[in-house]
């Protein structure tokens, strides 16, 4: 076998193989059973523990279009969970680049719920069940200020309504009324919430992070500073599954859809590593 030729294969062949590994499982979908990681289950349970009568779920988003495929399903899965339990959901954006994305997510999830609603009580109403607080810079400002007054730092919501005129905001004042803050991010914002908000106001914090930053958050999950975590697209898929199993909320489970492709791509990369090593050592032995 010509190992040298194999090692010097055109990189575009590798790119094409990778593209096929992603596309084929999307064209011919197969349903694969997933195990649920402890950290995801812990986050689910922390949201389950919110008292809908006096607390809310705060989803803090700071992702941008660049990580939309990983982070967007997390935000939607959390909203579904909150809506299914009738826990009021507040959403804010720490970076402007993500602000319209969250609007999309809210519209989609509200649409899914309202399409099945039969009465006003069943429906998800803006101002009663969800509020999109919008964006205020720099991130440290809203993180600290929400400990004193949420409507103070977000006087107007994303759509320009006065927040103090919205029904749910009359009883949600600050972190004392927040069951858990889940920071969805490709950065370190869950740690900012831990360092600046949890230490001062004692609020519970969870994370929904891209897989790249997940390994850095495990030490914080171990100490209980993070109540739980969704790690990457797999974490989002697990959360989607947990919500779907318990509440049958329906809607598109975007992270779950991608799991077969994810499996194929991971296997392919492992094959590449093995093949590359076999060729390298065979060549070295020959020379």
């Amino acid at each position: 076998m010509n190992w040298e030729r194999l090692l010097k294969i055109d990189r575009r062949v590798i790119f094409l193989t990778m593209a096929l590994a992603i596309i084929l499982p999307l064209l011919f979908p197969i349903r694969l059973t997933m195990g649920v990681q402890r950290v995801t289950r812990n986050l689910f349970q922390a949201v389950e523990a919110i008292d809908p009568a006096r607390q809310c779920l705060l989803i803090s988003t700071d992702y941008t279009p660049q990580t939309e495929p990983e982070n967007h399903p997390m935000a939607k899965a959390l909203m579904r969970h909150g809506f299914a339990r009738r826990v009021p959901v507040l959403v804010n954006a720490l970076y402007v680049e993500g602000a319209p994305l969250i609007d999309q997510a809210i519209t989609e999830v509200m649409g899914d719920f309202n399409a099945r609603a039969t009465s006003r009580e069943d429906s998800i109403l803006y101002g009663r069940d969800i509020v999109y607080l919008g964006w205020q810079p720099p991130p440290i400002v809203p993180i600290l200020a929400m400990g004193e007054s949420i409507t103070g730092i977000y006087p107007d919501d994303y759509y320009g309504n006065r927040t103090d005129s919205l029904e749910v905001m009359r009883r949600i004042r600050n972190y004392a009324d927040v069951g858990i803050v889940v920071a969805i991010t490709p950065l370190s914002s869950p740690l900012w919430y831990v360092q600046f908000a949890q230490t001062k106001y004692g609020v519970k914090v969870g994370a929904g992070c891209t897989a790249v930053c997940a390994p850095d958050f495990y030490p914080y999950c171990a100490t209980g500073q993070l109540s739980g975590m969704m790690a990457g697209m797999k974490g989002a898929a697990e959360y989607e599954e947990l919500v779907e199993q318990k509440y049958r909320t329906g809607g598109r489970l975007k992270a779950t859809e991608g799991m077969a492709s994810q499996s194929a791509a991971h296997v392919l990369i492992m094959v590449f590593v093995i093949l590359g090593n076999v060729a390298y050592f065979a060549m070295r032995r020959k020379s």
Binding site: M18, A19, I22, L26, Q66, T67, E68, P69, E70, T210, A211, V212, A214, P215, A231, G232, M233, K234, G258, S261, Q262, A265, H266, I269
Partner: peptide
Amino acid sequence: FTVMARVSLAIG
């Protein structure tokens, strides 16, 4: 985890 992250973006 980084492989997982980048592949997820391509899937999207």
